[in-house]
Design a binder for these strands. Structure first.
Lengths: 245, 245
DNA sequence: CGTAGTCTTGAACTGCATCAACCAATGTGG
DNA sequence: CCACATTGGTTGATGCAGTTCAAGACTACG
């Protein structure tokens, strides 16, 4: 159970940003050593979230952001009538909970898709620390802005792409993020079900499944349940950029 | 041409936040008098944007946010293949340009749908001022977060609603925002074309037009080109919450 | 080892897109 | 001030992408 990089007698649930291999992907990007030490003091306990468990849920009081340390999450919003939509998938180094700042209450559910660990970032402390450190402030603003840009990209996808284009774009986005984390650009294991992919992409699970099969028939992918191997990345890219030719 | 509320010999293009009737809807919400004065000094010149003109465009260097003072805007993102998506409509008191923080370059186009005026908010100054004033910092974070929540709502709409539900939700959202600005909750003039509504809602303009006609047949709306009168708001609400019954 | 959850595939249906014609409003130049 | 062009909107007929319903196969986990 012990993290081998931290002495067992110390708080094993706390991980210093300065010692974290995700610091170049996460909130601390570009911070000085001095700033990193301050950030270390702010980061709260690490929290383990089991597969299927909710990190937070809509309506819950917002007190902290969470940085994914290991594992994989989905976020979902629900309409009053019960309709649910997956609004994103988050992997190591990505931030959860930004939607909560708006009303001091979380606006979505965050659910672990595999056993995961997150670092708690008490929001009040982040605000005061970012009044002190310009770079931290700027980095935090960039992360929020990036989330807005990402969401606009999803709106484009949902508003104007066809099923094949959506799935191709989704796979390319996933592999790109995995590659940034040192994983292979051509092999991935999906952590989510066809239904969750469908919800995110505005499709039914059957359509997702059929489209996977179609890509396999066309020798673009090799699909074995959740194990995906990309045989022809260029073809995937072409599917996305095809528009209505 | 002169604004009757400012002496003609002063900089007629500059409007103080402290004297602006939008301050309860805009960035200054909840600020103290002292903070308002500082904000006044920061706000750059007011800029007029003619109908059809672009306030900024994707790729342009990002230097400032813009608060809509009067008028109406749309924002659009484009994929590499030319596909375009309307990502939002902005009215008085709403902020434009948040997407630019992410990369120091704007990620979308902002186009005036009627002759408009915006207040320029130099971004560097906003960051330094928000290091000084906790409330301003917090308010700015809330606005960014609200944008994220809004986008997630649009994703829900695009991903899981049918044409009628989308248009009903759109109209209710518009009237709600107009009502917050003192306009009637039951009569509105659309500033955008059917095509722009369609792009925003992930529908073709013909579908938008047909759906307007259907609502008119059902005595939910009275539609005269861009003049819309809501005859039965409850029915509209029901259309949105109908789900798949 | 069995049962529940997940995935695949087929067949029929449907909501929206597409294509196309027409109309109304607004603008333009002679 | 009228003829004509342009832009935006409506409506109809037809087609198809993706949904729905259904049945069966695979897999994983207690």
């Amino acid at each position: 159970m012990h993290d081998t990089t931290t002495p067992p007698h110390l708080d094993a649930l706390k991980v210093a940003c300065s010692a974290c291999n995700l610091r170049e992907l996460c909130l601390p990007v570009g911070l000085s050593d001095e700033e990193l030490v301050s950030l270390d003091q702010m980061i709260g306990a690490r929290r383990a979230v089991r597969r299927g468990e909710r990190l937070f849920h809509a309506g819950e009081a917002f007190t902290a952001l969470y940085a994914v340390r290991t594992g994989f999450f989905k976020t979902t919003t629900a309409a009053e009538d019960g309709r649910e939509q997956v609004t994103g998938f988050q992997m190591a180094g990505e931030l959860l909970g930004l939607d909560g700042i708006s009303t001091d209450h979380h606006a979505c559910d965050a659910i672990a898709l595999e056993d995961s660990q997150v670092c708690m970032i008490p929001y009040g402390q982040l605000e005061s620390l970012s009044r002190e450190f310009t770079l931290l402030q700027h980095q935090f603003h960039k992360i929020m802005s990036r989330e807005i840009v990402r969401d606009h990209g999803v709106m484009l996808l949902l508003g104007s792409m066809r099923a094949e284009e959506r799935l191709a774009a989704f796979l390319l986005n996933l592999t790109q993020r995995l590659q940034a984390r040192g994983f292979s650009p051509s092999a991935l294991v999906l952590r989510m079900t066809r239904e969750e992919i469908g919800s995110y992409l505005g499709l039914k699970l059957e359509t997702v499944s059929r489209t996977f099969s179609k890509f396999q028939d066309e020798a673009i992918l090799e699909v074995k349940q959740r194990d995906i191997r990309i045989l022809d990345q260029g073809a995937l890219q072409q599917v996305v950029n095809a528009a209505n030719c």
